[in-house]
Simulated scan of single mutants.
Amino acid sequence: MTVKPIHLQICGLVSQRWSWKPRTVSSLSSFSPIPYPNPYSKLLPTNTVARRVRFAPFHASSSPLPSAGIVRNIKFCQWCGGSTKHDIPEGEERLRAICTVCGKIAYQNPKMVVGCLIEHDNKVLLCKRSIQPSHGLWTLPAGYLEIGESAVEGAIRETREEANADVEVISPFAQLDIPLIGQSYMIFLAKLKKHHFSPGPESSACQLFST
């Protein structure tokens, strides 16, 4: 089955139309191939997805705009349970929740989402979500990184959970920041260890799509 273009969502949260052909451009300007040296590049055929998919270049602003991300209104201290006040700590520029009892500051940091772009026989493995958000949409297997695991370990675990597939990570593929929802995505290029996959609890179907 060939889908050109195909409607994807990474972890069911980022909607974007990707066309699996040369010079594909994503409207998400921050989504770009990671400029890391890839020791496996000579092992990748010239027709692999990693070589064919192109994204818009990343342009960093010299004067970053204020974040429009969602910030929770923290009312109580997570350490002692005391009430908090919202103020700008000395030496900082953002409002923080500061405990009025123990004085500790509650920092809110982005969530890390990890996943795999899995290629097998010039096809890409996608999962169809069976739960919200984005029920019924096709996605890359991805999810939140857990405490105590590396980004690669998390991507492999999420792939196993959502597609019942064992994969070998080849290299970093792309990195995407979404300040609006406080998330940062790390996607790895991977390959199947065995030609076996099936829907996990969060997927209604898994399928290889021609590129």
Score class of each variant (00 low, 15 high):
C77M: 04
S62E: 12
I147W: 09
L44T: 02
A163V: 08
T100G: 05
P179N: 07
Q132R: 08
V169A: 06
N47M: 03
E146V: 06
E92C: 06
S62T: 06
I34F: 09
S150Y: 03
L95T: 13
A142S: 13
S204V: 10
N38C: 03
S15V: 04
V71G: 07
K191L: 04
F197R: 07
T84A: 14
K4W: 03
H86I: 04
W138P: 11
G103E: 05
H120S: 15
K42N: 10
A174W: 05
G154S: 02
P199L: 10
R72D: 13
L43K: 10
A56P: 00
Y185G: 00
R157M: 04
T139H: 09
D87F: 09
Q16Y: 03
M1Q: 11
S210N: 14
E149H: 01
L65P: 00
L43I: 03
L189K: 08
G154Q: 00
P5T: 05
I131V: 13
I88F: 12
A56H: 02
P201Q: 08
F209N: 02
S63W: 04
A165I: 03
K4L: 11
L189P: 00
V114H: 03
S83Y: 05
T211Y: 15
G148V: 09
I156L: 07
K193F: 00
F173C: 01
A106F: 12
T24G: 15
N38E: 04
E168S: 15
S15G: 14
R129E: 08
N109I: 10
S27P: 01
R51D: 11
F173D: 01
S171L: 07
I6A: 15
L8I: 14
I170T: 06
A155C: 05
C99V: 13
S204W: 11
Q16R: 02
R96T: 06
A163S: 15
E146M: 13
L13G: 05
V71I: 15
S41F: 06
V169H: 01
G182A: 06
A68S: 15
P89L: 07
E92N: 08
H7L: 05
C127E: 02
Y40F: 07
W79T: 11
T84W: 10
A205S: 13
N47H: 14
D166A: 13
P141V: 00
E90N: 03
V169G: 09
S134F: 05
Q16M: 12
N164W: 01
V167D: 08
Y185W: 07
H195L: 07
M1T: 12
P133M: 02
A190T: 06
Q78T: 12
K21V: 12
N38V: 01
P133R: 02
K194I: 02
G81W: 08
S198G: 07
A163H: 07
P201H: 12
A205P: 01
K193Q: 11
T211K: 13
L43M: 10
S83T: 09
A56K: 00
I10N: 06
H7F: 11
N47Y: 09
N73D: 14
P199K: 10
L13R: 14
P22I: 04
I105L: 12
E161A: 11
V152G: 02
G81M: 05
Q78R: 14
E90H: 10
A106Q: 14
T2M: 08
V101A: 15
R72N: 09
L140E: 09
M1S: 15
H7Q: 10
L65V: 10
V114S: 04
V113M: 12
I88W: 09
T139W: 04
C206L: 04
L125I: 03
A68P: 12
W20I: 02
E168F: 12
S61E: 13
